[in-house]
Design a protein around this nucleic acid. Structure first.
Length: 417
DNA sequence: TTCAATGATTTACT
DNA sequence: AGTAAATCATTGAA
């Protein structure tokens, strides 16, 4: 009797299996042994002991051919495949493979890998949608982003040039994103079709359940969607960079218009005793200057600190605005209690500050030239009164009160707003 | 190219 | 939350 010979011819084997254990993904087919409990199978059960070896050799041949089929040329392989399909042992082998597969639970191995929605992906999707990159073409994303930045004090509204530049860059990103997305989708579906065809083809020689095909498709989709996630991530980064470059107000600072500076300075110098505009005044100023409230806040913050730091430097400016205010004041001489319009009109002052310039410092005489002629008494009153405001006005100019001055010290603080 | 001016941001304080 | 003070980053004139 022949002892269990190597069935594959591919090197040593223990003879009990089919020598396939070295092949990835395959399992030793111990149960194929004719004496095993699987002999109840209709195709193999009736075979006698005398042709048992022959059957095994047949099966070994088939498996060997399957193993080597990919090494052959296309024509050769096609011919082999046809031969295999017609092989008399093929149905038996096929059913055994089915049985083994059922047992090993191969098809169920990754069943629990059902991915839940990745929060990172959700975030990316949401961002791309919000930026107007993903989703329907509307141009709203860019506009929304820009308007958001503008309303938060980021940009002056007259920077429409930057806006259009931003929009065009964004739409460029959008186009690239969609093109790449489409490309990946197409590649994914092509690859899926290809793999499904392959599996269908393979199902003629090995058991391929619909579930397995499904799983394979899912794996392919997962792979492609991970690539798409990378694309989304890159797109988000690009949008972020674009935003920071275009919407960072500090980078794209624009000086305020002459008229806006004028309005702000008029308010500042006419409220020099207490240059802290109320919320309403800020809004009014913002409206007049076509800037945001926070820009008004910035301006006053800067102005206060810079004025305080170098009063001398701002003296000339103060004089100019004081003169303006004075002119307006004399024009409305008939009605001294009318709210000061400071020439620009619009915001309502609850009472103009009396200070028309800067206090006398280091012997400098605050004499204002121009259309209006001031007599000595008037000048004295103005400077004295205004300086008393300086001295007594709490926080404002706290440490930096002007040097050397004696004044009546009347507390007029906070009277202006 | 330099540099003062200026709008915005950051940090600390109240 | 509003402000002072320091600082950054850009603008625009010389």
């Amino acid at each position: 009797m022949l002892q269990q010979q190597p069935l594959t011819g591919n090197g040593p084997s223990n003879g009990r299996g089919l020598g396939l254990s070295s092949h990835p993904g395959m399992h030793p087919l111990n149960s194929v042994h004719p004496s095993s409990h699987h002999r109840s199978d209709g195709d193999t059960g009736h075979e006698g002991a005398e042709n048992g070896h022959e059957s095994r050799r047949d099966i070994g041949d088939i498996l060997q051919q399957i193993m080597t089929i990919t090494d052959q040329s296309l024509d050769e392989a096609q011919a082999k495949k046809h031969a295999l399909n017609c092989h008399r042992m093929k149905p038996a082998l096929f059913s055994v493979l089915c049985e083994i597969k059922e047992k090993t639970g191969l098809s169920m191995r990754n069943a629990q890998e059902e991915e839940s929605q990745d929060p990172q992906l959700v975030r990316l999707d949401n961002m791309l949608l919000a930026e107007g990159v993903a989703g329907p073409e509307k141009g709203g994303g860019a506009a929304a982003a820009v308007s958001a930045a503008t309303s938060s004090g980021g940009m002056s509204p007259d920077s429409s040039l930057e806006h259009s530049d931003y929009k065009s860059k964004l739409s460029q990103i959008r186009n690239i994103y969609h093109t790449e997305m489409e490309k990946y989708d197409q590649a994914c579906s092509e690859f899926t079709t290809h793999v499904m065809n392959l599996l269908r083809e393979q199902s003629r020689t090995r058991p391929v359940s619909p579930r397995e095909i499904e799983r394979m498709v899912a794996i392919i989709h997962r792979k492609f969607s991970s690539i798409q996630t990378q694309l989304k991530q890159s797109t988000c980064e690009a949008v972020m960079i674009l935003r920071s470059r275009f919407l960072d107000a500090r980078r794209k600072r624009r000086n305020f218009s002459k008229q806006a500076t004028e309005v702000l300075n008029e308010y500042f110098y006419s409220h020099l005793a207490n240059p802290y505009p109320s919320e309403e005044a800020k809004e009014e100023l913002a409206k007049q200057c076509s800037i945001t409230v926070s820009q008004v806040c910035n301006w006053f913050g800067n102005k206060r600190i810079r004025y305080k730091k170098n009063i001398g430097k701002f003296q000339e400016e103060a004089n100019i605005y004081a003169m303006k205010t004075a002119i307006v004041a004399t024009q409305s001489e008939d009605s001294p209690h009318t709210p000061n319009s400071t020439g620009s009109g619009g915001f309502s002052l609850t009472g103009p500050d009396l200070f028309l310039g800067v206090p006398p410092m280091n012997g400098e005489q605050p004499v204002y030239m121009g259309a209006q002629v001031w007599n000595f008494t008037e000048l004295y009153w103005i400077t004295t009164m205004s300086f008393s405001l300086w001295q007594t006005n709490g926080n404002w100019q706290g440490q930096n009160t002007p040097p050397s001055a004696t004044s009546p010290g009347n507390d007029h603080s906070g009277e202006s707003d």
